[in-house]
Amino acid sequence: MLRWTDLTQIPEGFGPSVVTLGNFDGVHRGHRAVLATVIEQARERDAQAVAVTFDPHPVAVLRPDQAPRTITPLGLRLDLLEGTGLDAVLVQEFTAELAGWTPERYVEEVFVEALGATAVVVGEDTRFGVRNSGDVSTLRALGDKHGFDVVVLKDLGGDTRWSSSQVRELVATGDVAAAAEILGRPHRISGTVVHGDHRGRELGYPTANLPQEMGGLVPADGVYAGWLLRLDRPEEDAERVLPAAVSIGTNPTFDGHQRRVEAYALDRTDLDLYGEQVGVELVERLRPTERFDSVEELLEQMAHDVERCREVLTSIVPS
């Protein structure tokens, strides 16, 4: 898949293409249904399937105090978009200057001149251009003027609309299982493994600690069943994906104050993961974070948590 971060990187004369526009945060099942239509239309027209997206999220520029927390960092978002079968993705840096473009200018410079669009696929609630002044009727009028078709898709997801906002709400409450139903895969957070207090190793449960600046939306505190992905390893490596118990919180039993994400690879005390890029995929929240009166009580609960993780993960194939 071709990846561009500026209009100047698009080859002159590129096209014809079928284009869609969106933030695609999470690349959830609703997004993938839209992208499947883009790809289908492109194949029928002997054209390139292209998605246009933004970084950062437009709200982060226009109304920073209301900016949504990012579900998937840009790198993962692009990998997920590539997995849909798209031919190219244009990531536009969203700036105040770009926000001031009229719908007409945006369509002409991006869809028509740069991408040679023969069709544009959008949802029925699509808005674009300065102050969101462009809508589907605007796009259709511009399509008539410039010679491209407009394919409008209705909301997807049945009675419950699939949306990035809904995923954020579910993850924030710790309901990662319900979030996975919308995402079509477990929610992932990622980062480079750093040193912690080494307390887990002392207790017999060594953990991979993610940095404070990690990628992806961190869910509510608690203990989760999940997968530890060693992202530096090839996909066919048997050691790349490991079942894990994941703790998110401040370690209240030890009077901790810093919120952390720690993953214990089940039954593995031999791993040295420091400096590795890892992903933590969260399958199910087992319980909230608790403060225990003694280390012995904590160890008893941790043993129970590990067994529950084993039960949850035994019948699941990692993504």
Rank of each mutant, 00 (worst) to 15 (best):
E281H: 00
P234K: 08
H187L: 14
V122C: 10
E169H: 14
V91W: 02
V171S: 12
P64S: 06
R3D: 01
A33Q: 15
F148S: 05
F128A: 11
D79P: 00
L266D: 05
T207H: 06
L266W: 12
A172I: 04
Y106V: 02
G158D: 10
A119Y: 01
G30P: 04
V50D: 09
T250F: 00
V151K: 13
A88S: 13
E12C: 01
D272S: 15
A117S: 11
V306H: 12
L21Y: 09
P206N: 12
E276S: 12
V110L: 06
S163C: 12
R105K: 15
V91Q: 05
P243Q: 08
E311H: 07
R201V: 05
V91G: 02
L282M: 13
E213S: 14
S294D: 11
D25F: 06
V246S: 03
P68I: 10
K145F: 02
R188P: 00
N209A: 08
Q92C: 08
R240A: 14
E311L: 12
E290A: 14
A238T: 13
S164I: 10
D144C: 00
G26L: 01
L273D: 06
V194K: 02
E236S: 14
H31P: 13
G83A: 15
D267M: 07
V246K: 06
A225T: 02
V50N: 06
Q92A: 14
R230G: 08
Y106W: 15
H304N: 01
R291W: 01
V122N: 03
V107D: 11
V317L: 06
L170M: 14
V89N: 09
H187R: 02
Y106E: 03
T126E: 13
R63W: 04
A238V: 13
G85L: 12
L242A: 01
Q41E: 15
A88M: 10
E181D: 15
D125N: 15
V50I: 13
A47F: 02
L210W: 08
V89A: 03
E236N: 10
A60C: 06
T289W: 00
V151M: 06
P73G: 13
T207S: 12
G215T: 04
A177H: 15
A172C: 13
L210R: 11
L80N: 04
P211K: 11
Q258L: 14
F292E: 06
T253L: 04
Q166Y: 08
A99N: 02
L98R: 15
L228V: 11
A67T: 08
M302W: 05
V91F: 03
I39T: 06
I182D: 03
W4P: 01
R32G: 00
